[in-house]
Design a protein around this nucleic acid. Structure first.
Lengths: 226, 226
DNA sequence: TCAGACCTACCGACCACTAGGTAAGTCTTC
DNA sequence: GAAGACTTACCTAGTGGTCGGTAGGTCTGA
């Protein structure tokens, strides 16, 4: 199953800041409209994070947004459309939208650790992604494709960074980059889950840092092969 | 919220293999009863794993078990009772029930890797725990206490093994055992999620092995501190 | 004879979603 | 600047379906 990305917006395409179109063109939406959508999305993020996708109800999200359930469906024409809107916020690790200007080589891993450190102050986002990513492995879940390609992208990015590190001479060239990349991503995800259940028992950033260093230790240029 | 452990069984306490009690004592349940319960539990495991707890319905579990929904509720008096039964199977990593006879020191970590290797052939169990553990961080989830104490126990066990390793002289004594333990558990969990979404992209056992070795490399006795 | 293992029938609550309305805003035209 | 056309942003009411759980019955095996 896939998200109905074609159906996730109101009849008129929303614009960041609605611009008065040229005469004869389509009408611009009301100025408050975009802001309202963002309010609703913020509440949906919170609700999906605390309840999961399936267990969250449109009625609850609507109520928390101060409108009725059909009122909510005016802005997002279905529950999957709302989920789609939430996932498209791409507010999570900010890794995904780094694009081509991202740090090169080992600097990317530093950036990763920094992101983890900041995430420790954004419990809602951490919870959202932890809950939805695991829920997405269930049968026919509408976020399955999203998370599949998210992990593929994340993996590719870390692999590329490790390859760059080899080229830059930062690490030896004989490391199994796929395996190391998977381990780095895995430890970040796993720590999030533990942290959500027992925040006082887990230092996400420090442990991520330690693990990345350990995975690359002995692989630095100049070290003897093991 | 907690699981209603007091209410998770049929009127009569189930026995592994029901023994005919002495005359005058309480009546023994019918011989097929315990087997039926186990059949139901196996189907519940499968269903919770593929749908999650909240999205799985008693009606579906009942149908797959070849009875009606009230028929199912005859064996487990509520949905949470059924969940409780599923979690009590403790069929997962087998780590939890190792008890006092578990391997000492670094041998425990070898055992951990071996478990991961075997889990790659038991997708259902992996999926069950991945889905339920993440779902358990949602508000009021009935499995929350279970997973909280499961992680606490797992953490304590790995920490203890690392301390033993120090005492046995297998590693240096100045490692941050809590952090290393968290990292080991985290990488196992994180790899499971990636593996469920893209099995061909992840070698769970090899990557776990590599990460554990990396975390302990440089900490072996005789290595210089650094 | 009696409890275990089911069944049918039903409950109220909740689910996502639709139909169809209203009030108010925006744009065009005069 | 006012009138009319059109759209947005909601609303109330109701759809059919599913949910977990209960009441109370029947059959059967020990």
């Amino acid at each position: 199953m896939t998200l109905d990305r074609t159906a996730d917006h109101s009849p008129d395409q929303p614009v960041e800041h609605p611009v008065h179109r040229a005469p004869g063109g389509t009408r611009s939406p009301r100025p408050g409209g975009a802001r309202r959508r963002e309010e609703i999305l913020a509440i949906a993020v919170e609700t999906f994070a605390t309840r999961g996708y399936h267990h969250a109800s449109l009625a609850e999200i609507a109520e928390r947004a101060g409108l009725t359930q059909p009122g909510l469906l005016h802005h997002f024409r279905s529950k999957t459309a709302l989920l789609s809107g939430v996932l498209e916020l791409r507010d999570d690790s900010e890794m995904a939208q780094l694009g081509t200007e991202r740090p090169r080589g080992l600097a990317l891993l530093d950036h990763l650790v920094e992101t983890v450190r900041r995430n420790a102050e954004r419990e809602g986002i951490v919870r959202l992604y932890a809950v939805l990513s695991a829920e997405s492995v269930t049968e026919g879940h509408p976020a399955q494709d999203f998370f599949r390609s998210r992990y593929a992208g994340l993996r590719a990015m870390v692999v590329e960074a490790l390859v760059e590190a080899c080229e830059l001479g930062e690490t030896r060239a004989d490391i199994d980059v796929e395996s190391v990349a998977n381990a780095i991503i895995a430890v970040m995800d796993g720590l999030q889950l533990q942290w959500l259940l027992a925040p006082e028992s887990v230092d996400m950033a420090a442990t991520t840092r330690r693990t990345i260093d350990a995975l690359l230790a002995g692989l630095r240029t100049g070290d003897r092969p093991g």
